[in-house]
Simulated assay, not measured.
Amino acid sequence: MKGTYLGEFQEVVLLSILILQDESYGVRIQEEIQNELNRTISRGALHTALTRLEEKGFIKSEMGGATEERGGRRKRIFTVTNLGKESLKEARAVREQLWTKVPDWAVNVSYAVW
């Protein structure tokens, strides 16, 4: 396993896979991220993240059945492993712990009007 560090983009990809469940293949993951976060990502960036997540053991993939709509091609379906779920829980806990220590004044935004 390559390590357990989970970057922000990898966290977003893992969460998208959990949301999409049986529909978690490359194009749908890309669409989910774009629709939910209004964030455009390239297929290359997504595939790099998916490869790294699989190398770390956070996700696994298998080939789905061929469909007529895809010209007989199969989709690679991704699922989050228990290790991936634990990593997500840990990342969330760390963020929540840090946010509890941030004073309110530090995140209140005020704009000066000239």
Score class of each variant (00 low, 15 high):
residue 1 M to Y: 04
residue 1 M to P: 08
residue 2 K to Y: 06
residue 2 K to G: 03
residue 2 K to V: 11
residue 2 K to T: 10
residue 3 G to S: 10
residue 4 T to N: 12
residue 5 Y to C: 06
residue 6 L to T: 03
residue 7 G to F: 13
residue 8 E to N: 11
residue 9 F to G: 10
residue 12 V to Y: 00
residue 13 V to A: 08
residue 13 V to M: 12
residue 14 L to M: 12
residue 16 S to A: 15
residue 16 S to G: 13
residue 17 I to M: 05
residue 18 L to V: 07
residue 21 Q to C: 04
residue 22 D to P: 00
residue 22 D to C: 00
residue 23 E to H: 15
residue 23 E to N: 15
residue 25 Y to V: 07
residue 26 G to D: 03
residue 27 V to A: 02
residue 27 V to G: 00
residue 27 V to W: 02
residue 33 I to D: 00
residue 33 I to F: 07
residue 33 I to H: 01
residue 34 Q to R: 14
residue 35 N to P: 05
residue 35 N to W: 07
residue 35 N to D: 15
residue 36 E to C: 00
residue 36 E to W: 01
residue 37 L to A: 04
residue 37 L to F: 15
residue 38 N to D: 10
residue 39 R to A: 14
residue 39 R to V: 14
residue 40 T to H: 05
residue 42 S to V: 01
residue 42 S to C: 02
residue 43 R to K: 11
residue 43 R to V: 05
residue 44 G to A: 10
residue 44 G to W: 05
residue 45 A to S: 08
residue 45 A to D: 04
residue 46 L to P: 05
residue 46 L to W: 03
residue 50 L to I: 09
residue 51 T to W: 04
residue 51 T to V: 03
residue 52 R to M: 12
residue 53 L to F: 01
residue 54 E to Y: 02
residue 55 E to S: 08
residue 55 E to Q: 09
residue 55 E to P: 01
residue 57 G to S: 06
residue 60 K to M: 04
residue 60 K to L: 05
residue 60 K to C: 03
residue 61 S to Y: 13
residue 63 M to N: 06
residue 64 G to S: 11
residue 64 G to L: 03
residue 65 G to E: 06
residue 65 G to N: 01
residue 67 T to P: 00
residue 67 T to E: 07
residue 69 E to P: 02
residue 71 G to P: 04
residue 73 R to Y: 11
residue 75 K to G: 02
residue 77 I to R: 08
residue 82 N to A: 13
residue 83 L to T: 06
residue 83 L to W: 02
residue 83 L to V: 06
residue 85 K to Y: 08
residue 87 S to D: 05
residue 87 S to L: 13
residue 89 K to M: 08
residue 90 E to T: 09
residue 91 A to P: 01
residue 92 R to A: 15
residue 95 R to S: 13
residue 96 E to P: 00
residue 96 E to I: 14
residue 99 W to M: 12
residue 99 W to C: 04
residue 101 K to H: 09
residue 101 K to W: 07
residue 101 K to V: 02
residue 101 K to G: 07
residue 103 P to L: 08
residue 104 D to P: 03
residue 104 D to G: 01
residue 107 V to G: 04
residue 108 N to E: 10
residue 108 N to G: 04
residue 110 S to F: 12
residue 111 Y to A: 14
